[in-house]
Each structure stands twice: as C-alpha cells, then as structure tokens.
Write a protein that binds this DNA or RNA. Structure first.
Lengths: 343, 343
DNA sequence: ATGAAAGCGCTAACAA
DNA sequence: TTGTTAGCGCTTTCAT
C-alpha cells in the first residue's frame, strides 16, 4: 500500500504556494536575508517545507553546484580498530559542517586504492579526500595535486609529497619503545614488521628501532627485521617466530602494529611461551587487548582522536581556502609509550 | 599549476569523436549490443574514454535515473568492533554489485537515527537501507514500508515490524550462556545490561537469562538485572558493581555486551577481584580481548561475517525484486557460546 | 546503426 | 521583494 511515493521537489513546494522555486531555493539555503525576502513569505515557505517533509535532492544540487558535501575517506581496513576510531571522529566532525564521509577500505592494495580515489573524485564527485595511503610513491598522487584537489594524508605520509598531512613521529616513537626494551636488559631484539616495507609508518618505525639499537651499542643488521606479508600474517608470524626462537637468538620482540601483535600473542599462548621471562615483547598501536592480557602489553599509543579531528580540520581548511596556500600543514602529533608488564 | 581542471563529460567524448552522446552513453552502460552499435564505433568510444580517463558523473546519473547505487548503513557506533566488522563485509559485498555504502553512527539516539534515515532516503537518495535500529517502536519506521523502500534490519529487530531482518537468536544464546554459569555452580547471577532496555537484542538476552534461571530453579527477579546507561557505562558499572559486591550478593555476572564487559574487566583488575574464584563472569559479543585476557573470558560469539553478507544479500533481493514479496526474509543465524576460564 | 531533444531537481544570473 | 530562465551531465524516447 504505497502512498505518495514520489518525494516532493522544490517545484512542488513552489507551486502549492504559488511562488517561484527561486524563492524556495533561497529559503532552503538561508539566503532570504541576502536577497531581502520578507519574513512572511519565508515563514510560509518554511511551513510548507515542514508540512511536506521536503528535503532537497542532493543529486540535483551536486549536479548544479559541482559541490557534493561528500568527503572520501580511504583507509587500509575499516574494521581495524585504529582506523575505525579515527573514522568515527571524522564522521562526527564532518557532520557538524554538513559533510558526509564515504568510507572505503583499500586492503593495502595500491591499485584498488588508486581506483577508489578516481571513483571518489570523478564519479562520486567528493569535495575532498582523507587518505591513509598504501602507495609507494608520492608521484602517483600528483594528479590530485595538479587538479588542485583537496586531499590530506593521514597516518601514513608519502615522502616528497607536498600534501598536507596528519601523522605521528613514528621514528621517535619506535626509538623510545625500543630504548625501553634495551633498558630492561634486552640484548638481541627483533622487529616484526609488515610488508610492503615502503609504507612510511613502517619505514620510520624500523628506522627508530635501528637508531635505538645503535645508540645503545647494539649493532643493527637487517637480520633484526622480519617482514610479514599483510595477506598472511598469522602463518608468517608463526613460521618466523619458530625460527627466531629455536635458534634462541632473541630476547626481545617488537611488533610493528596491532595485527602482528595479536598473531604473536596467539603464538605465545599456544606455545606456552613466558612473556616477559623468556622473551620481552612490545607493540605499536595500543588496543584494548593490551590492557587486559596476561601479561599486559607495553605499547605505543597513538592519539586517534586527535588524528581524526585534525584530519578533518585540515581538510576543511583546504575546502574553504583552496589548496594554494604556500605552506601546507604537516601536523605531527605526539605518541605515548605505555610501559606495562610484557617488556 | 592546475591543468585541465574540468573533468571530461560525456559530451566531450562525443564531440571529440564527432558522434552523439547517446552513443557514448550506450557504450558506458554496455548497451551497444542491445542497440546494435557497431564493434568499430564501440571500440573508438572506449578508447577515447580510456584516453581521457572519463568517469560518468554520478550526480547527473542519479538525477536522471533516480537510482543512486548508494546504500545507507546505520549502526549505533561504527567504532564498535562488532559493527565495524559487519560493515567491512557489507562494503565488500556491495562493491561487487556496484553499490557504495554510506555509513553513519546513530549513537543510540532515536532522533538522530530518524534524521539519518530521512537524510539518506530523501537527500542522498540511497537505494536501500541496512539498519541496526535503536528505536523503540516498529511503527516509527512505517513510512519506510509505506513508500515501498528497501530496508533490512540487522542485529536488532523491531517486534511487530514486517521488514526483513538478519539477526541471531539472542534469547537462546543468553539462555545457553547463563545455563553454563549455573552448571558451573553459580547460585546468584546478575545481568549487567544496557539501557534503553527496549532494544530487541537486550530484551531477548534478558529473557533468555531469566528463563535459564527459572528452568534451573533459581528464581528470577528484576533485582537480578542492572541497567547501565549507554552514555555513562564506566561510572555506572563501577557504582553498581560496588553495590552488588559489597553486599556480597552475587557469585556470577553476565555482561550483556562488549562495552559493558570491558568496563567490568577494568573494575576487576582495579579492585583485584579474582575471576572466576570470587566471581564467575561471561559476556555477550566475542572480541579479541576475551581470548587474551587473564583469565580468558567466556562469551557468546556472533557470526559477524554471515550477518554482513546476509544483510547485503537480503537487501539486494529487495533492490532487484521489489519489497512486495509476500513473505519477507527473516534470517536468524546461529551463535556459539565459547567457554573459557572466566566462568 | 546513430542522432536529436527532453527532462531529472536544483541554483544563480538576470529581469522585473 | 520576487519571477524567469538557462543549464549542470546524464539517460531515454522517438526519429531517422
């Protein structure tokens, strides 16, 4: 039993009131003051709008104005709590300014990411982009910059890119975390990191790790670093830990992100490995698990709320003031190393 | 140094090839066969499209066809892992059929939810809706049904609603979980649940809890149930646990969702309460934390993947075949109680 | 096998 | 203070 299936248009409002749709449009867009529309007509129109439950058709508005009030958000995986928390903040902030996010997961796949970007920019006509990029090369995003399209990089930045960004100092954070392990007595520490290794956060974490070793007189070699492929974390972690531990080579382990850490923790509990007695262990990305596990896990906490709110703030600035500002914001937020029981 | 700032339109393709835009449109929409367009022209058009990197403007297409290939997804909180996992699946499935999700959080706020629904339907022109509703009354969604608008309820259903739905049998799941505690020797169990209490999942969990008590000869009274307000989980959990435990009334605790469980676990660890020795504890919604915590937490696991994939499948059916099917799909998926160390 | 033209709902320049 | 009109980019009906 459908009724009134067609949504009212601006024309319906105008006709039923015997006024022009210009007028209605003005009311919708709060331009009655600007054009000197009388209080009375404004009220009449507003009442009719409420009565019919009219809402402007965004497709039409987008087509006409070229502005969509949509922002594209691309992250590697929306179900990773690190990203879903950031996204939640972006959603809230965006809404306050009338923007809606279109959220997409890139699956750490460069090609997919590029397709998503094009889809969002050219098909969905988003007004701006917030991007945690998995690309290896800043040049691949040059087409965005060339178009003067508002885009802010978050979490992962691209070296050589002149896009504004919101990130943390991964190098320093990893340095501090590693140093803490060294001070607890570790002599041979392995970093379990993720491939592709060109991702800025990963690269910086590795650098900070290496610097800490060297500063503290523990020589760093590439053997200290194991790359785990994103697509097969669990198996790869198991295999590599087997090798590392059988040869009994390491007394400390640093997981470069929360996914890897969870795989390690499964390994520990399955193999009844005692942490921190047999092996000290820390991770990047603080997640709930780390506060409650046995032992609790020391980790680098990232300011997800700030990352979220700054990323929209920076994008909004681009949206309102254009992308031609001489010095683009590059925001680096502080992290915090939370020392717990694991190492 | 912007270049070529304007995106190519269907007209640009047509003009540069000296053909009509009808033709180009046909090519874009794979209708060349249908209209008997020659191979050669099709190829020519396709090449030009590739050359210019043309992508059809969705706003224009939406305006013209009335179809947006957008689906609205509303959940209480996108950063809750239970929902973000479901959403990830929906995103993937939808993409395979050319749909993009617009994801929104309702914050357990009925009014906000209703506004989001209207915004998505009337402004964004989404083609369908996937809804984990926080409403108290099926009638509030009648306007959706009356319009014949495709909408599927997930996770939470509305009693008396004739919308299709994808959910789990919360009553049975809570029954089984509670029964397990009873079998472990609990005599006085409290259910820590969430308000508003009219939400179907919450109501059913309470019913299953009550039934288990009664079936096993432990009388159920409303005193066994504590409602925690969504907005202030931590404080309220702390206060209520203080009361419950000081009077030393309970030997078992059932957290009705993962948010509440986390607050309880913080309480336990802060107050050095021994679980399960001093208090047995279980939860609804299995999350990573439960597998690694000390002790590990027994919990009801919900099939998030299936919820996600079924919800899009059901919506797709509505999208393709209309909402007039006599018997709407009401899908109930199995849960699994995972017994761990906590109770 | 291809083209012309109308129109989706809206905004904005211009007219009155 | 209000109305007329063109046109955003696309699909689709009707012509040819």
């Amino acid at each position: 039993m459908k009724e009134n299936t067609k949504k009212p248009s601006i024309d319906d409002i105008a006709k039923s009131l015997g006024v022009s749709k210009t007028l209605v449009s003005m009311v919708i867009n709060n331009k009655t003051e600007k054009y000197g529309i009388s209080e009375k007509t404004r009220k009449r129109v507003e009442e009719k709008i409420a009565e019919l439950g009219f809402m402007p058709n965004k497709a039409a508005r987008r087509l006409r104005t070229g502005k969509s009030f949509l922002i594209g958000v691309i992250v590697p995986d929306i179900s990773n709590p690190f990203y879903s928390k950031i996204i939640r903040i972006i959603e809230d902030k965006a809404q306050l300014d009338g923007y809606n996010p279109m959220i997409c997961s890139s699956d750490e796949d460069s090609e997919k990411e590029l397709n998503l970007i094009k889809m969002l920019m050219d098909s969905q006509q988003v007004d701006g982009l917030i991007l945690s990029s998995t690309l290896d090369n800043a040049a691949k995003l040059d087409f965005i910059t060339k178009r003067g399209f508002p885009c802010v990089l978050i979490d992962r930045v691209l070296s050589g890119s002149n896009m504004p960004s919101v990130s943390v100092d991964n190098e320093q954070a990893a340095y501090t975390a590693t140093e803490s392990m060294i001070k607890s007595g570790c002599k041979t520490i392995a970093l379990l990191t993720i491939s592709p290794g060109y991702i800025s956060t990963i690269k910086e974490r590795k650098q900070g790790f290496a610097r800490a070793l060297e500063v503290h007189g523990l020589s760093f070699t590439e053997k200290n670093v194991i790359e785990i492929p994103f697509q097969d974390i669990k198996n790869s972690v198991y295999e590599n830990l087997d090798t590392l531990l059988k040869k009994n080579k390491i007394d400390g382990l640093f997981a470069a992100n929360n996914n890897i850490a969870l795989a390690c923790m499964e390994y520990f509990s399955e193999k009844k490995l005692k942490v921190p007695e047999q092996l000290k262990f820390i991770s990047f990305d603080d997640i709930d698990v780390f506060r409650f596990s046995a032992p609790t896990i020391s980790a680098v906490e990232q300011p997800v709320e700030e990352i979220g709110s700054w990323s929209f703030k920076v994008l909004k600035d681009l949206l309102e003031n254009g992308t031609n500002a001489p010095n683009k914001a590059k925001i680096s937020l502080p992290t915090r190393f939370i020392k717990r029981k694991s190492g």
